[in-house]
Design a protein around this nucleic acid. Structure first.
Lengths: 133, 133
DNA sequence: TCCCATTTGTGCGTATGTATC
DNA sequence: GGATACATACGCACAAATGGG
């Protein structure tokens, strides 16, 4: 599965492989991924290399880490719809750590920033959709 | 600056410090941050610890790494405005690696997904704003 | 209460590769 | 070629949180 001689770094190869297995449904939403130690042994890669692969998937919003329970495929939270109206401006960006706490999103999850007449409001990107009224 | 005895991990403390210095303008957009080796020496932290701090700022979209030139404060690309109309649905999420290439955004940058009658379109989150018509 | 196994988090050590100037 | 600076990847040790016996 992992080719040490490839030009592609091993942690990226592993991330690719896990991403594909998540997409295929082999690891369904809510399922636990194999532990770092297991993956390390299975692949022959160092644990730090495995961790880098996990880090990639985390910043892609695919997985969620619950220490020390394990690493899980992110479940879709039910989607909230928020209405935006004429003149509103919408941007997507990564939140600061403080904004992360405010919106209650985990690391690697973007936010929607809506600029209204009254000011700016942030919405968690992982379970919010804006609908243009 | 860095307190080894703090409960807060050292790489997070360093990330906090650098984030504040970027926000204050000490490191302006386009400016180069001190090298990993320099920060390592200055703070007494191991280089891998410094790298973790950099990684945090990178996933927050604050910095951009140009190897081997150095690490730079991200410049705001000029903003494109895209109009969305009644019935459109907008979401923010992290792109897959392939979508990253399509939208030409670096790692850690979210995308805006607009669902229209004709289908879905992605926009780079780092220089696109949606305006409600 | 306590100990232990599991699992992720932090942090330092060390070596080598790669791209740019 | 050398110096610089980030990238990859191995190693090691211990901390912290959770759960089971």
């Amino acid at each position: 599965m992992i080719d040490p001689d490839s030009d592609r770094p091993r942690h990226r190869q592993l991330a690719d492989s896990l991403r594909a297995r998540i997409a295929s449904g082999e690891f369904a939403p809510g399922a636990r991924l194999p532990s770092e130690a297991y993956l390390s042994q299975e692949t022959g890669l160092h644990r730090t290399t495995v961790r880098k692969a996990m880090e990639i998937l985390r910043t892609e919003g695919l997985i969620e880490i619950r220490r020390p329970k394990g690493t899980f495929v992110r479940e879709q939270r039910p989607e909230d719809f928020v209405e935006v109206v004429r003149g509103n401006v919408v941007r997507a960006r990564m939140p600061t750590p403080e904004e992360r706490r405010q919106c209650d999103v985990s690391e690697g999850v973007p936010v929607l920033e809506v600029e209204r007449a009254g000011g700016r409001v942030l919405y968690a990107g992982d379970h919010t959709a804006l609908r243009v009224r």
